[in-house]
Computed example of a mutant assay.
Amino acid sequence: MPTILVADDDANIRELVCLFLRNDGHRTIEAVDGKEALSAFTGTPVDLVVLDVMMPVMDGWTLCKELRSANPDLPLLMLTAKSETWEKVKGFQLGTDDYLTKPFDPLELTYRVKALLKRYRIDVEQTVNVGEVKINRQTYKVTNGMESISLPPKEFDLLYKLASSPGQIFTREQLIDHVWGFDYAGDDRTVDVHIKRLRERFADTSEFRIETVRGLGYRLETNV
């Protein structure tokens, strides 16, 4: 059962968040400010932190920075009443993984928590399995049963991204940012070229297929 630390000085928000998280099968720990949250974090194993930005004693910005320094792989979901772009950018720069603006739908919160926990497990294990196809990010090796498949780095990263979230649609821009980086200055059609190559390499596999979602982007669908 994942343990989630919820840090918010609003008792009603904490109660609501913890209620939905517990109903979704998670154990929760509460903290009224950043300092108390940091103390709870150091004393108890935590799988994810939901933190508010505007808290007394130690605000969410500082807490985010401290948590990320202590554990670079800890999933962080930031809650805030602020919706300005620069606030979100600051949160991501300090290390938060996701952002939710108040007022929020509790069901969306639980979905985002699930997604973060899934992503965290994938990042820790460094391996994604799609049926018999195994994609190991640590060794950059792909195997299909007993067959080893050699991929160039960009094709590997693209496949790993798609396979990490089967069924999720990724735009070309999202794939460019993740695989080639935010400072990539080339044509986003390079994604199409790499997708075509991946399809050719895995044309004979029955484990998955990469679908084009017209007007949106691409998604990987499993056949198992």
Rank of each mutant, 00 (worst) to 15 (best):
Q138A: 10
Q138L: 14
Q138P: 00
Q138I: 14
T139M: 10
T139A: 08
T139R: 05
Y140D: 14
Y140H: 13
V142F: 05
V142K: 02
T143P: 00
N144A: 10
N144M: 13
G145A: 08
M146A: 11
M146D: 13
M146K: 12
E147S: 07
S148P: 00
S148K: 14
I149C: 01
I149P: 00
L151M: 06
L151P: 00
L151R: 03
L151N: 03
L151T: 06
P152F: 15
P152C: 10
P153I: 15
P153F: 12
P153T: 15
F156K: 03
F156M: 09
D157M: 09
L158Q: 06
L158F: 09
L158C: 07
K161L: 15
K161G: 01
L162F: 09
L162V: 08
L162R: 01
A163T: 04
A163P: 00
G167W: 08
Q168T: 09
Q168E: 15
Q168R: 08
I169F: 06
I169W: 07
F170T: 05
F170L: 06
T171C: 05
T171E: 08
R172V: 07
R172T: 09
R172G: 02
E173D: 11
E173K: 01
E173L: 05
Q174Y: 05
Q174F: 02
Q174R: 02
L175D: 02
I176D: 02
I176T: 07
D177R: 06
H178C: 04
H178P: 00
H178F: 12
V179N: 02
V179G: 01
W180D: 04
W180N: 02
W180E: 09
G181I: 07
G181T: 07
F182L: 09
